[in-house]
Design a protein around this nucleic acid. Structure first.
Lengths: 129, 129
DNA sequence: GCACACTGTATCTTTGTATGATACAGTAGT
DNA sequence: ACTACTGTATCATACAAAGATACAGTGTGC
């Protein structure tokens, strides 16, 4: 479930953050779950446990994890915002624009992209019920 | 049109590639257009011209630019693929999933995300006619 | 055809960041 | 309080981003 690619040029810490964020968003780990200790997770992934500690701390800083020395690392509840602020919306929009750019430059038409996006959203709706 | 943020932790070269790719995809620069020389562009942006040269070369490697020493840098036509290969589709899907992850963890609902995505696609359709 | 002023290219140096090594500190059970 | 587990802090090293500088191709005017 939590996977990283040791041969990728992308920093291990970034990869780990990304896969953890995905697991949390998809509820593959539930609110309140304790994650493996930094040493255990590092051992599983074949990387240094300090890198895991740094990734955990970053996710703590962004409010996704609760990290307590001596206790462990726990998944915080996903906040469901009734009102989303403009800055967040702008960031997501920018991310969408970047994805469209990549698709267009790969030769994918806008209509094909729309179908792809709607299909992905459907998949998510099914997975998070 | 071509902008970068000198204070961002994101590498200048990556930023420049991204903004150039966007400009090409949106046809803000037309096929066959000559881009500013590496020194001119660097001067405009306030960065070292070697960084611009590296960004140009990367876009050449991905088939977006034609770079000729002594001549200049030119925009190649955007390829419109009739059939898009599975690997490309997979990459775009992954990018969409990552965007959904970020949106969800920011508290944006899936339905709100769908509206945002469709709206962005509409904007693109209008811009590239 | 040569000079010159422009193009991008190649290579080295500097600087910052990712990763790893290792010593530290809080927590809980015995 | 001892012990075995948690995460934290700091330093060392390896690598990559960015800048400095010397090089090489192209076209124009004389």
């Amino acid at each position: 479930m939590i996977r990283i690619d040791l041969d990728s040029p992308e920093p291990l810490e970034d990869q780990l953050c990304k896969t953890l964020r995905s697991a949390i968003a998809l509820r593959e780990v539930e609110q309140g779950d304790m994650l493996p200790s930094v040493r255990q997770m590092a051992s599983d992934l074949g990387i240094h446990w300090n890198t895991v500690a740094r990734a955990y701390r970053r996710l703590q800083d962004s409010g996704l994890l609760s990290v307590r020395r001596g206790r462990g690392v726990f998944v915080k509840p996903i906040r469901e915002a009734a009102e989303v602020d403009a800055q967040t919306t702008a960031k997501v929009s920018e991310s969408i624009q970047e994805t469209i750019t990549n698709a267009r430059l790969s030769g994918i038409s806008l209509s094909a992209f729309r179908e792809l996006a709607l299909s992905e959203i459907k998949t998510w709706e099914a997975r998070v019920s």
